Amino acid sequence: MIVVVAETGSTNADVLDRRGAAERFGEGDWLVADRQSAGRGRLAREWRGGAGNFMGSTCVVLRRDDPPPATLALVVGLALHAATRPLTARDTRLVLKWPNDLLIDGAKLAGILLERSDDRVVIGVGVNLAVAPPVADRAIASLARAGQAPDRDAFAETLAASFSKELARWRTVGLAATLRGWQEAAHPIGTRLSVAPPGEPTLTGKFAGLDDQGNLRLRIGAGVRTIQAGDVALVAGV
């Protein structure tokens, strides 16, 4: 089920609120808004929408044998990549960036926000289909700039189906298959990255893939550092 509302503060907040929307939304359902007045991204950043863009949330009810909940960001990333790839030109560089971004020719096209409440993980997704609202210090892109913006409601249907498929693979085949798929859709091994782990100085190194728990591996000199959380950016010019 996909429910569309004209305006809300935040679709994630609505689905998190067990007294409201969450009582009506089960796993696999989506809440999509034409406009959000209080959209947000990771690290408390504001997420600005725009007319014709996709702003929506769904939830996953965790099971005992599920892989680590944080790896749902990789599941959604794969679903986004699969839903978006057919809408871009073959020579467009569409890649995933750990942990929660989809980039088009180096600029941010889509973002993911995971928020947990008890046994639920609420997943918010924002995709710049029609317009690319400016964000300070970040290159932002839209599908319209790369070609033609798809119909928002048709995109919602495609994304919901893609996410359902990737979620089933995560649960039944296992995390290793998700990790392989994600790395195939990501920027190449050896891509230079800057990483700001919480409370630490910024690190610069080369992308060395993901470990078996979905953490980022960053090659720094002769060693490899495992990053469990942090703000990641591609180093310009390489």
Rank of each mutant, 00 (worst) to 15 (best):
A229S: 15
I220E: 11
R192A: 14
T71L: 11
T92W: 07
V121S: 06
A33Q: 02
V224P: 01
R116M: 06
R35M: 01
L74G: 09
S117N: 11
S162V: 03
F25Q: 06
A229Y: 10
P67N: 04
A149T: 02
R45D: 12
G50K: 01
Q183F: 06
M55E: 11
A141K: 04
L43D: 10
D65Q: 14
W30E: 00
R40E: 06
R24G: 12
D17V: 01
V76G: 09
A168G: 04
S37H: 06
V235D: 01
T172N: 14
I112Y: 00
V238Y: 09
M55R: 05
A146N: 06
I220K: 07
R90Y: 11
L179H: 03
A154I: 10
A168V: 05
S164H: 10
R48V: 09
R180N: 14
L103T: 09
R64N: 11
T158W: 04
P67Y: 04
A154E: 13
V125C: 12
G190A: 01
P134N: 08
L210W: 04
V232S: 09
R138F: 13
G124K: 07
L218N: 02
G77T: 11
W98Y: 03
L193E: 01
V238I: 13
G205S: 07
A132W: 06
G26Y: 02
S10R: 00
P69L: 14
L114Q: 00
T178Q: 09
R192L: 07
A110H: 02
R90V: 15
I2G: 08
R171W: 06
G209A: 03
L80V: 10
V61E: 13
T88M: 15
V61N: 09
L143P: 02
P134M: 07
W30Y: 03
Q183G: 04
D212K: 12
G9Y: 03
G209T: 04
T58Q: 01
V232T: 11
V95S: 13
I189G: 06
D91C: 09
A177F: 07
G41N: 11
P133Q: 07
R138N: 11
R169Y: 05
E46S: 12
L159K: 01
S194F: 09
G214Y: 00
D29Q: 03
T71R: 10
G106V: 00
G214E: 00
A44T: 10
L31A: 02
A33I: 00
T158K: 12
K206V: 14
F54A: 05
Q148H: 15
S10C: 03
V135T: 14
Q228S: 15
S194G: 13
E23N: 13
G181T: 04
V4W: 15
V3N: 14
A144Y: 03
F207Y: 15
E46T: 15
A144F: 04
D231Y: 13
